[in-house]
Design a protein around this nucleic acid. Structure first.
Lengths: 391, 391
DNA sequence: CCCCTTGCCGAAACCGGTTTCGGTAACGAC
DNA sequence: GTCGTTACCGAAACCGGTTTCGGCAAGGGG
């Protein structure tokens, strides 16, 4: 008996847990099943996998015996022949903005729930941005750790897509992308939500509506365009100054709002592409002594828990992240089973969750400008950060 | 050629992506390596795994050739013989309180980073509480989806531990538990933090310090005991009324604080077991017109991002969740390689992150009681809550 | 009655590794 | 010079499945 040397200082042969119970109770193999049925394992395998050359009666017998004996094929044993492992892959971008945190838990719940219902599992990895992402993806691919991948937060030109396309590995997007050829996806129509948000504000009487969005994800362009078409549709003045801001974080939202409200003709309402930025807008409003939902209106998108707890509750278009995860898993599994990607494309609408952050304008842009000016010059409070901003 | 029937409507034989590039470029197998070296695959395998009956020279030749050809053993092929798959398992509790959300992303980053550095992967599942948890764990075990498991949020008597112990499957706790026999763990000493928090408040001059903690996780008892020993050590009056509250959520924290401050002799300082409850305390203070950090002091534990963004920033003991995940992965891998669980137990201290929520008491308990009474009866402001913000 | 299908299953190869079991050559001791 | 050892590697079984190939029996057509 020649034992390996390297494997750490501990006893190489001993299975951990020394004297503990059964050293991993032996599972029932396909041979056990075959033996009991008086068939060969090849026949049993074909019966279980629905081959047409097995009689209906035999197929039933096998299925029943498998059920009784609690037989479950070992995925990794199957995979070495079939190449398929019944596992979904998910590579998260490490150190991403806070703004994705709240979604993650629900997203995973959705993914894993659908996956496990189909007998699949989820393999998760993380990677820094850029090369590390493609390297990690590559490693998972050629170690066959996943049959396919879920790609969240797609970009218009996404290197992950290029990689997976080239490798011929199935993938499904959470979001859309620039070149949709061969892509399957699930997405929420942020553009429709942004358009509706503008229309809602216009219907309430707002004439100057600002937009805060951005980022380099593909949804950024869609949402901005949606807001733009809302402005056009409502017949509002299309002032490019009002659409000039991009922010994804709380601090970014705060700064963007401060700048917009410092315009000669400030917007009485703001539409934000993400809730996190809207929460920054709240902060800016507080600093300027403006009451959100009365002096100024805000409508946003995402529906994170904090938004509901904000004061006043944020009016926002809510995305059902858990459902998204669930559906993405189903789509990807279908794709791995051979469905054509073109048939696996779904979009849903975000649902408005009305809060207290929007309403009819109480101030004209001129009056708002005056309030802002007053807050900035007089009434200067201690230590507040916004004083450092230009103007 | 007999093809299976069931596999969905799509062409059963065609690998998806139709005409795309290489249908998964063939990987280099151990046979390729052996052929090129003029050895048998058995020899190559032993060489790579450090068996002692391979000459040093051969071992080097093999290693080099493997490097050159980019050979990477297929984990699932290895696993069918060895039983080990080089994969960590993590089963999250579905629909948990919001309070775990903020940690998840960082925790996963830590786990996956350490895992991938060792060439391991992470398999994630979710389960509802109770039976579903053990069922899911059981399924992963007997499908050999993971070599070992990370168990976050341990309870004093934890069914997961019982299951894994019985099955003889390695596991490592994030937290401690009632019966530590055969357990490996990593934990942050919340009890020490709670003790220090009390001592810090006492040193600042507080005499009545309340505690808000709880939940049925094992840490609850530890933290409460830590706070208690802080009270004893500082020579503060040990009033059981001040330690009667349990809360893990924002709303729970709010209610607990309101009750504590309604006592005849209310605490001028509160120690919270979790940040989320402390944020609820902020809300309660706002409702009562009390200024956190001036009229009342609050010290908490966790270090979630929101705590730093609160106004004033929350003084809290910060847990490095990413580091915890990383270390847990390392411990579990060591355990799977055969190390004794008793040698794999680590605890670290939480680091104080001073904010503006604590300071010397400006009010006596009597004065505080008067302020509270005043806020509750007179000065009752109109419906909307947000107007009650101080200033 | 013979031949050709067709239905159904056994036998065996295969997937990519690991591990056991010998066997040979070189070496030192006597 | 013979006889163990010892070092080193080949051969083959094995792990738990999948898939190909071929063969046998029953059935149908001529």
């Amino acid at each position: 008996m020649y034992q390996p040397e390297t494997p750490d200082p501990a006893a190489p042969g001993a299975t951990q847990g020394d004297a503990s119970a059964s050293p991993r109770a032996r599972r029932v193999t396909i041979d056990d099943l075959a033996r009991r049925l008086g068939l060969t394992k090849g026949t049993v395998s074909r019966a279980l996998n629905g081959y047409s050359d097995i009689s209906h009666r035999t197929r039933r017998r096998v299925a029943q015996a498998a059920e009784e004996m609690g037989y479950r094929p070992l995925a990794q044993a199957q995979s070495i022949r079939t190449g398929r492992t019944r596992s979904l892959g998910l590579v998260l971008e490490r150190g991403g903005h806070d703004d994705q945190r709240p979604f993650l838990a629900e997203f995973l719940e959705g993914l894993t729930l659908s996956a496990s219902e189909a007998g699949w599992t989820l393999t998760v990895a993380t990677a820094g941005p850029g090369d590390e992402m493609t390297a990690t993806l590559g490693r998972l691919i050629d170690e066959r750790k996943a049959d396919g991948f879920v790609l969240p937060r797609t970009r218009t030109s996404d290197p992950r897509i290029a990689l997976l396309r080239a490798a011929g590995v199935p993938f499904v997007l959470y979001g859309r992308t620039g070149d949709p050829a061969g892509c399957a996806w699930y997405d929420v129509e942020g553009e429709a939500a942004m358009r509706e948000a503008v229309l809602r504000l216009a219907a309430a009487g707002h004439r100057r509506v600002g937009y805060i969005g951005g980022g380099d994800f593909h949804y950024a362009g869609l949402r901005r365009a949606g807001a733009g078409s809302g402005v056009a549709e409502a017949g509002l003045p299309a002032d490019p100054e009002l659409f000039a801001e991009a922010a994804l974080t709380r601090e970014g939202g705060r700064e963007a709002a401060l700048r917009l409200w410092s315009l000669p003709q400030p917007p009485t309402a703001l539409v934000c592409a993400v809730d996190m930025a809207a929460l920054g807008v709240y902060r800016a409003a507080a600093e300027l002594g403006l009451s959100v939902g009365r002096d100024v209106s805000v409508i946003s998108y995402d529906g994170i828990p904090e938004a509901a707890h904000a004061d006043p509750p944020l009016t926002t278009y809510h995305v059902e992240t858990r459902a998204a995860g669930g559906r993405l898993a189903e789509l990807l599994i279908a794709l791995c089973r051979g469905a054509a990607p073109e048939t696996l494309r779904e979009t849903v609408r975000a649902r408005l969750r009305p809060g207290g952050s929007d309403g009819a304008p109480r101030l004209t842009p001129d009056e708002l400008a005056a309030r802002v000016a007053q807050a900035r010059t007089g009434h200067r409070r201690s230590s507040t950060k916004w004083e450092e901003q230009p103007r």
